[in-house]
Structures are given as structure tokens and as C-alpha cells.
């Protein structure tokens, strides 16, 4: 499993963090300012940076509890980039080389996430086969169904 795609996404998140993390949610950053500082920090695409900022601001606006919960932390920036890359007109519309690379890395990471679940399921299957795990409850279900059926048959004569 490659490490590079995740590193590339982490670098993108780190560059956005430098732009966003110091800004309080709701602060009046213009789209032009975001675009300019994001590319200056090495983020691959201006429009994508703006889309992530808007996503973060929408999320922060929904949190009314306290200022800390509204902060744009690394985790929140990471998540926002994730959701924007997953389903955004920006990614569909623009196909600059760097955005294309980032999008490809993102898809690789998604595939790896699915593979991790697949590997885990296979490992669980190995242990289940060795130990008979899961079989017993299934047989208990069958036995219960049979008992219910017998009871109903007796009642109905």
C-alpha cells in the first residue's frame, strides 16, 4: 500500500491549515485573499481552497456552543478537504494538472480505506473459521426457529 498519496493529501491539508487555522470562524476573508494565500502556501488549486473554506464556514456556522468548537482545526480542515474532493463542482469542472494529481491521490486513499475493511473482514474470517465463531449463534437461531415452528404446528393440531 503506497504512502505517497496520503502524504500528498497531508501536505495539502498542512498548507490549508497555514491559511485557515489562524483565522477565526466568521472572519471576513475574501475569496481573492484565500486564493492568493493558499497558492502562496503551496496548495494545488485556488478554487478548491475557496470551496474548502466555504465548507468549513458552513460547518462552523452550524455550531453554536462555543468558540473552541468552531475553530478550524487540522482535523476539521482535513475533513472539509475530504468532503469537497469527494463531491465538488470545482473538481469536476477544473482539470489542472495539480488538481488532477490531488484528486487521483484522494481516490487512491479512498480505495485503500475500502481495502483496509476488506483485509479486516478476511482476517476475521480466518479466525472465525478456526474457532467456529459466529456459527453457534446462527445454529441457535435455526434451533429457535425450529422450536417456534414445532410449537405452532402443535397448537394448530
Amino acid at each position: 500500500m503506497s504512502v505517497a498519496p496520503l502524504d500528498s493529501l497531508s501536505a495539502a491539508v498542512a498548507s490549508l491549515q497555514q491559511v485557515f487555522a489562524t483565522q477565526a470562524p466568521g472572519s471576513k476573508l475574501s475569496e481573492a485573499e484565500i486564493a492568493k494565500s493558499a497558492t502562496a502556501k503551496g496548495f494545488p488549486d485556488q478554487d478548491l481552497a475557496v470551496a474548502v473554506w466555504k465548507h468549513l464556514e458552513t460547518e462552523a456556522a452550524q455550531v453554536t456552543r462555543n468558540v473552541v468548537e468552531r475553530q478550524h482545526t487540522e482535523e476539521k480542515i482535513s475533513k472539509a478537504l475530504f468532503f469537497v474532493l469527494l463531491d465538488s463542482d470545482v473538481v469536476r469542472r477544473k482539470r489542472s494538472k495539480r488538481l488532477k494529481e490531488l484528486s487521483t491521490d484522494f481516490r487512491t486513499v479512498l480505495r485503500e480505506l475500502a481495502q483496509k475493511l476488506g483485509i479486516a473482514m478476511s482476517e476475521i474470517a480466518d479466525v472465525a473459521e478456526e474457532t467456529g465463531m459466529g456459527v453457534a449463534p446462527y445454529l441457535v437461531d435455526l434451533a429457535n426457529e425450529f422450536a417456534t415452528w414445532m410449537k405452532r404446528a402443535e397448537t394448530e393440531g
Partner: peptide, 28 residues
């Protein structure tokens, strides 16, 4: 998996053979 099952953190119910088929689907 072995540690998780031993610790009681995973329980299965139903047709266990499905695990391998679904596992293969996600790995490919």
C-alpha cells in the same frame, strides 16, 4: 483480528462465509 475477537470487541451473527466474499470485494 485475533486480539479484537479475544477481547470480545467483535461479535458475528449469521453466515460467516460472507465475510470472505465481501472482504474480497473491498480488497479488489
Amino acid at each position: 483480528a485475533r486480539r479484537a475477537i479475544a477481547a470480545g470487541n467483535i461479535e458475528l451473527r449469521g453466515d460467516v462465509s460472507i465475510l470472505r466474499r465481501v472482504g474480497f470485494l473491498f480488497q479488489s
